[in-house]
Design a protein around this nucleic acid. Sequence first.
DNA 1: TGCAGATGTGCAGTCCCTGCAGTATGTGCG
DNA 2: CGCACATACTGCAGGGACTGCACATCTGCA
Lengths: 221, 221
Amino acid sequence: MIATDVTVAADDAGQDRECPGRRERKKLRTRRALRSAALERARVQGPAAFTVEEICADVDIAPRTFFNHFPSKDAVLFDWDGAALAELTGEVRDRAGGSPLAAATAVVGELAAALTTSPIWHRQLELLRAHPELHGRIAHVGRAVEDALALGLAAREGATVPALDHRVAAAAAMAVLQVAISAWLADPAGPDPRAVHDDVLVRARDAFASLPPPGQGAGGP
Amino acid sequence: MIATDVTVAADDAGQDRECPGRRERKKLRTRRALRSAALERARVQGPAAFTVEEICADVDIAPRTFFNHFPSKDAVLFDWDGAALAELTGEVRDRAGGSPLAAATAVVGELAAALTTSPIWHRQLELLRAHPELHGRIAHVGRAVEDALALGLAAREGATVPALDHRVAAAAAMAVLQVAISAWLADPAGPDPRAVHDDVLVRARDAFASLPPPGQGAGGP
DNA sequence: TGCAGATGTGCAGTCCCTGCAGTATGTGCG
DNA sequence: CGCACATACTGCAGGGACTGCACATCTGCA
């Protein structure tokens, strides 16, 4: 047994939002225990080596039950449940003032800052650094976050479906975050993720500032 | 039998690059036949419903052989082989003049233009429109293309490993392409992908142009 | 023609994931 | 408290993806 209840409880203490009842709490505990056990197994054995059966034995549930909590084995490692996404959407929506891109990058910047403070995210990023082949399997998470951002940007203006500018802002912010994370993973001894994010953001802004209008192919300087 | 040799031959005639020998040609033919059969099966039955065994029967190879051509069932639908990626890298590398972002967006713009002309890409996009749940499964393709772009940008300046600005430019260009594709899929009757791409690119540039310097949170007017 | 390397194939096996049916546990109400 | 209801948990059976291994076949080259 690798993951213990102690580990689980320490992982994201304080993230306990509302407690709608014992059933919900137990479900949340099981969810986190599975995630924690999976992260530990993946760290020790490798992401491809651990099996669903193993982490189910770690948290003492039936293998069949695993798939009542997560749609796939991959999903347990990098998981953003609907509540977290909705919270992110709300955070963007409530950020009044400034352009959509300003709001999106502000929220994403705080997200980058949280990467090192959240224990779970730290473990996930360490795993990602050790096994770069996981990049592809978590791309859908980035897409989900991007959609949540775009939804928040739309809600900020009273709309229910994101406009093109909202999608552009969300995609740009996420692209910045992705590059920042990659750069930080490549050089963990360098600046913290928040600083890297701001650096990348400035570089992106400068790059677009000197961009000639498109449509005519390669135009001179 | 759904996919026929005729379909296969007509799919991307003219893409026959060098013919290094009968063995290579036969391998390429099998590869394309598998891809074509898979696309047709996915279109008719749905991406989750068709089996490897079926498309292997279509092109008359052993199921075991399938995994000598593709690493997974998902890979056969949206496939960029190493040669195509290397070609893309070269295209970026040979595009002299202008900033990295200008070079990247120029190449990506041509790529967007080719989306409607290439029969294979057309079939892939139609499949993507009919089954949006595939978005997540092809994210690694976008990542691979992004890496190829960054590599080309580095090579353009004589470097062998992309610098941060190269990664930023590649990520930005791919983010623009991704948004453009999504928008075009949502409204196929609208402008062609190339026009949508240029539109999204301008919107991204404008968004960054009015972006306040990061680090102080929301300080907009 | 003969050799070396690459490719195709069959087999056995592991693991992911699913539908179904039955049981246990938490929840709300009289 | 006791009862009905809603969820969650579990075992079972099965399909299908994917792999390692050994062997057959084919191609390029001398």
